Amino acid sequence: MTNPLATTTQPPGCGPKLLSKYFRLCDMNEIWGIVLEALAALGAVTTVVFILALFILVCKVQDSTKRKLLPTQFLFLLGVLGVFGLTFAFIIQLDGKTGPTRFLLFGVLFALCFSCLLAHALTLTRLVCGRKPLSLLLMLALAVGLSLVQDVIAVEYVVLTMNRTNTDVFSQLSRERRNEDFVMLLIYVMLLMALTFLAASLTFRGTFSGWKRHGAHIYFASLLSIVIWVAWITLLMLHHFDRKWDDTILSTALVANGWAFLLAYVIPEFCRLTKQQNPLDYPVEDAFCKPQHMKQSYGVENRAYSQEEITQGLEEMGDTLYAPYSTHFQLQPQNSQKDFSIPRAQTHTSPYNNYEGRKDGS
């Protein structure tokens, strides 16, 4: 019995028993599928290598603040791995199985990635200002909690859409309606992307420059993501494009965004992961206990050196002399009649000069 999904005209590069919906994975006439498949596979392998390296380097991270970021970065790598894996769902032909997968996982995976980047950016905004970073559990709660919102939105949309009819609703929808629903479903992800970009830009305003480099990684990763998303949404909403290019546009956006995450954020972060803790990246130990907005005074103010008092003293004393750059004691002229000269030795006539040993008149 012949499989109805198989076709008698096999494209060059595909096996004779391969189902038609997988032709893009091997069709030499549509080379874009093979190229994107190779790039997605390479990105997935690279991400797995970084995940394994994260477990190996966890004991070599000397900075306690960077060690708190490791669970969030692990979730981010899982999201990037899912982005590369989802590319195959867009290369394969749209049907009853790939349709729900596309609508469900596209927003969920990107929401997880941008939530992790946002949690990292928020703790960097505190570190560059000399404040304590967010705790490990709080960063995890932010990353997971923010991404769960998109999970609820996507699951609700897919369930409600598939319950309308028993037919293959995603493939039966018109191109305009399907693309509009797909973009509208990702509004929350776009909000996370914008917040991540804003939080990353705030890290450049701090005083501790060591953390600004980490903020720059998030800044460029989110900036590249914004450019990629603007490009694929614009192309997807154009009506003069043939519908066969929709899958090409979306799969290209997935691969490009996945590699943007790796090149702009993951690789630079791993290069600085095991760096020795720099004391200049942190305030002094008692900086968190010092009262703020108070004038600090060191020692007792010497009022003798007050320029205003010296000037007022000169005006009041009149003839009083003031010698600058000296001990600043007030010098006054004194008219003393005492003689303080050093006496010199003087010779006196001895009473014994005419003494001859006898009395006068003898």
Rank of each mutant, 00 (worst) to 15 (best):
H240I: 13
L142F: 10
I228H: 09
A194T: 00
K244G: 06
L238Q: 10
T203P: 01
H214W: 11
F261V: 06
T252A: 13
L140W: 05
M190K: 00
L254V: 03
A264Y: 07
L137S: 14
M184I: 03
S147K: 12
F182I: 09
L195M: 07
H239G: 10
L185I: 06
G210I: 05
D247C: 04
A231T: 15
V144Y: 10
F170P: 12
R272M: 03
D242T: 02
Q150C: 04
I218W: 00
D247P: 02
L146T: 11
S225G: 05
T165I: 05
A200K: 00
A154V: 07
K244V: 15
V255A: 15
F197W: 08
A141K: 08
L236Y: 01
W245V: 15
T248D: 01
A143T: 14
T252D: 06
H214V: 01
L140R: 03
F197H: 10
L191Y: 09
F241M: 01
T196V: 01
D168E: 10
T165A: 11
G145A: 10
E269H: 04
L235F: 15
M190T: 01
L263Q: 06
M162F: 09
S209N: 09
L148K: 07
T207L: 06
V255R: 15
L195G: 01
R175Y: 12
A194R: 00
I233K: 11
N257T: 09
M193V: 11
Y219G: 00
F204I: 11
L262P: 01
L263K: 06
L137H: 11
L173D: 07
L250Y: 08
A154E: 05
T234Y: 15
A200F: 00
D247H: 09
S225C: 05
F261Q: 09
F182M: 12
H240F: 15
